[in-house]
Amino acid sequence: NITAAIYDEIQQEMKRAKVSQALFAKVAANKSQGWLCELLRWKENPSPENRTLWENLCTIRRFLNLPQHERDVIY
């Protein structure tokens, strides 16, 4: 289940792992930094009809659900 909290989790994970938006986007969703920036802007007004947005957030959720040491190896 995806909630608005995922946006904060993304920010916290980037700080914790000391990774850039570009690197996080690449490893978590195989996307660009610009894409992640755009995604983070949706926090203010996520559209329930935007299926692509929710699919991408689900992809990021799966990455964030990995154990921390696995995420660190991927970075």
Rank of each mutant, 00 (worst) to 15 (best):
W54N: 01
S47E: 05
Q11Y: 06
K43Q: 04
E55L: 08
E55P: 02
E44A: 14
K18G: 14
L64W: 00
V27L: 11
A29R: 02
C58V: 14
I10N: 00
S20Q: 13
N30H: 12
L53M: 06
P46I: 15
K18S: 06
S32R: 09
A4M: 15
L66E: 09
Q12K: 08
I2A: 02
I6E: 01
P46G: 07
E70K: 08
Q68P: 13
Q21V: 13
N45G: 12
E44N: 05
P48S: 11
C58T: 12
E70T: 02
W35H: 04
K15W: 14
R71S: 00
V73Y: 08
R41Q: 14
A25H: 01
R51D: 15
R41P: 02
E49R: 12
V73T: 04
R71I: 02
F24R: 00
Q33F: 02
R61S: 10
C37P: 02
A4K: 08
C58G: 11
E9M: 13
C58K: 10
T3N: 15
P48H: 10
R71N: 00
D8Q: 06
L57W: 04
T59L: 11
R16C: 03
R41M: 04
Y7R: 08
Q11H: 14
I60R: 00
K31P: 00
E38I: 08
Y7M: 04
P67F: 03
W54I: 05
N56V: 03
A4V: 14
D8H: 10
S47Y: 06
K43M: 02
A4N: 15
N65P: 00
I60G: 00
S20W: 01
L39K: 11
R61T: 08
L57Q: 02
R16F: 05
P67Q: 05
T59M: 14
V19I: 13
R51C: 10
V27G: 10
F63S: 01
R62H: 13
L39I: 14
L36A: 03
I60Q: 00
I60C: 03
E49F: 07
K31H: 15
A17P: 02
R16I: 10
Q68A: 12
A5D: 15
A25N: 02
R16A: 07
N50K: 15
I6G: 02
E55N: 06
V73L: 13
K15A: 14
E44W: 02
R16M: 10
S32L: 07
E13M: 00
L57R: 00
T52N: 02
E9T: 05
I2L: 10
S20T: 07
Y7T: 03
F63G: 00
E13A: 00
E38C: 05
L36Y: 03
Q33Y: 13
P48V: 14
N1T: 14
E44V: 07
S47I: 07
K43G: 03
E44I: 10
M14R: 09
M14H: 15
A28V: 10
L39F: 15
K31M: 06
N65E: 09
K15M: 10
K15F: 12
Y75N: 03
P67L: 03
N65F: 03
D8N: 02
S20K: 06
K43T: 13
E49I: 06
H69S: 10
D8F: 08
K26C: 01
V19W: 01
Q12C: 12
K26G: 05
Y7V: 12
P48K: 02
Q11I: 11
T3Y: 03
L40F: 08
M14K: 05
E9F: 07
Y7K: 08
L57S: 04
R51H: 04
K43R: 10
N50Q: 09
K15Q: 13
A25I: 05
L57H: 12
N30K: 13
R41A: 04
Y75M: 14
N45E: 12
M14P: 01
S20V: 09
